[in-house]
Design a protein around this nucleic acid. Structure first.
Length: 109
DNA sequence: CTCATGACTAGCT
DNA sequence: TAGCTAGCCATGA
């Protein structure tokens, strides 16, 4: 096994997100061993070319989709999440079954 | 090396 | 609760 690069660790962390659940950029980064690199995760997804990567499960710290409402990426992410059983409002807000105020306890808590 | 950009976050008003 | 500002990290010109 080759030495995993930070980017690979981030990808692995995203792949570790269970279907129907979501995680925040900061959480993914921290789980990847890169605390404070939330922007690195975002940049990776923006440049990611892996269709098997569940990028749609990655949301902002507010629990909202990182795309502007009505945007193409927003619609796609929203659609994918809904197909996994995740409730998403028109505002892009994601509601987990645990109904936690913060993703911290909703997913990885 | 410096400036500008971005799928971010936390803090303050 | 909502909106704005400053801070932080990586990359590209």
């Amino acid at each position: 096994m080759a030495a995993r690069t930070p980017a690979e660790r981030i990808v692995a962390a995203i792949r570790a997100i269970p279907r129907g659940e979501v995680a925040g950029y900061g959480h993914v980064a921290q789980r990847a061993g890169l605390p404070g690199r939330a922007r690195m995760v975002a940049r990776l997804l923006s440049r990611n070319d892996d269709p098997t990567l569940p990028w749609h499960r990655v949301l902002r710290s507010d629990g909202r989709i990182a795309f502007p409402v009505g945007s193409e990426g927003f619609v796609e992410q929203c659609d994918r999440l809904r197909r996994e059983g995740v409730d998403v409002t028109d505002e892009g807000r994601v509601r987990t079954a645990k109904r936690a105020r913060t993703l911290d306890e909703a997913v990885w808590g």
